[in-house]
Design a protein around this nucleic acid. Structure first.
Length: 253
DNA sequence: AGTTCGCACGTTTGCGCAGC
DNA sequence: GCTGCGCAAACGTGCGAACT
C-alpha cells in the first residue's frame, strides 16, 4: 500500500479505511484500492451486501483493524511516542487504569490519568491545527488569480482568453527574446498569445497621440517587420482605431 | 430525602532526565 | 540553558453507595 495516499485522506476517511469517490460513485479501500460501486450488491461470504457495507466488511476481512494499522505507524507519521502508542492500545481495548498501571511495570494510576489528559490535549491541538491548515488552503483556493486586464474597447476578448500576469510574463519573454523593449521574434498563432503580444506592442504607442498610417507602420517596424499584419490586428482586436479614410490612427482607451 | 464517604477521573504542578 | 517527555503527587469534581 502506498502510505502517502493513505495519509492524505481526511481524518474521517482515515479512520474508516476507505474513501467515497462522488464522481465515480464508488467506495475505494485505502489499503488495497479495491473499489465497490454504489448501487451494486456484493456477495460477501454467504450474504449479499450493498457497496458501503461490503467495503466495511472487506476492510475487516482483508486488512484487520484500521486502528492496528494507524497505531503501528512510526512517530514521524503519527507523532506518537512508544509509550503513548502502548497506552492508546490499552485504552482502545478498554483496559482499566489500574490494569494498565500493572501491565506497564509499576507505574501509578495517576501517571496513566496524566497520559490520558495529555493525549486529549494533543487531540484538541490537532483539531485546531487542522482547522488552521484548512483555512489556509481555502484562502489560497479562493484567492482570485491576478488576471491581465485588457482595455475596455478590446474585441475578441472573453473568459477563454483569461490570462494571469504570471502567464503574461512567460508569454512575453518567449516572444520578446531580446527583452520587453526589444523586437518581436514571431507573431503567435494562438489567440490568447496574440492578445498578450498585441497589448504589449500597443503599450509602446502614446495613448493621446494621433498617428498617420506611415507613423504607425514605422513604429511597428521597430518591433516587427510585417507591419501590415500587426496594424490590421490592432484594429481588428480593438487596440487601435482609425478615421474613415485611414489617414489618422489612435490608441483606444 | 439529605448527608457522608469512597472512588474514579480530569487537571495542575513540580521534579528529574535526556537531547540539542 | 532550553525544551520535551515521563512520572508522580496533589487538588478538585462528579457520582454512586451507604448511612442517618
Amino acid at each position: 500500500m502506498k502510505k502517502d495516499w493513505f495519509l492524505e485522506a481526511s481524518p474521517e476517511n482515515l479512520s474508516n479505511g476507505y474513501v467515497y469517490h462522488k464522481e465515480k460513485e464508488t467506495y475505494v479501500c485505502l489499503f488495497c484500492h479495491e473499489s465497490f460501486q454504489d448501487g451494486v450488491i456484493y456477495p460477501v461470504g454467504d450474504v449479499l451486501l450493498e457497496a458501503k457495507r461490503a467495503i466495511r466488511q472487506h476492510i475487516i476481512d482483508a486488512h484487520g483493524s484500521v486502528f492496528d494499522y494507524l497505531i503501528r505507524l512510526d512517530k514521524k507519521d503519527s507523532g506518537l511516542s512508544e509509550i503513548q502508542r502502548e497506552l492508546l492500545t490499552y485504552f482502545y481495548e478498554g483496559v482499566s487504569d489500574q490494569e494498565i498501571a500493572k501491565k506497564m511495570d509499576a507505574k501509578s494510576t495517576s501517571t496513566i490519568r496524566n497520559h490520558r489528559f495529555k493525549l486529549r490535549e494533543k487531540e484538541r491541538q490537532a483539531k485546531v491545527f487542522l482547522a488552521i491548515m484548512s483555512l489556509l488552503k481555502k484562502k489560497r483556493e479562493d484567492e482570485p488569480d491576478d488576471f491581465v486586464i485588457f482595455h475596455k474597447g478590446a474585441k475578441m476578448v472573453d473568459e477563454r482568453y483569461a490570462t494571469t500576469n504570471k502567464e503574461k510574463e512567460k508569454i512575453l519573454s518567449t516572444y520578446f527574446k531580446e527583452g520587453l523593449d526589444g523586437r518581436l521574434s514571431i507573431f503567435p498563432s494562438k489567440e490568447k498569445r496574440k492578445l498578450i503580444v498585441l497589448q504589449h506592442m500597443i503599450s509602446r504607442f502614446e495613448s493621446d497621440k494621433m498617428y498617420s498610417e506611415q507613423e504607425v507602420n514605422e513604429k511597428i517596424k521597430e518591433m516587427y517587420d510585417d507591419f501590415a499584419t500587426i496594424r490590421r490586428y490592432f484594429i481588428e482586436y480593438g487596440f487601435m482605431d482609425r478615421n474613415k479614410d485611414g489617414s489618422r490612427y489612435w490608441v483606444k482607451k
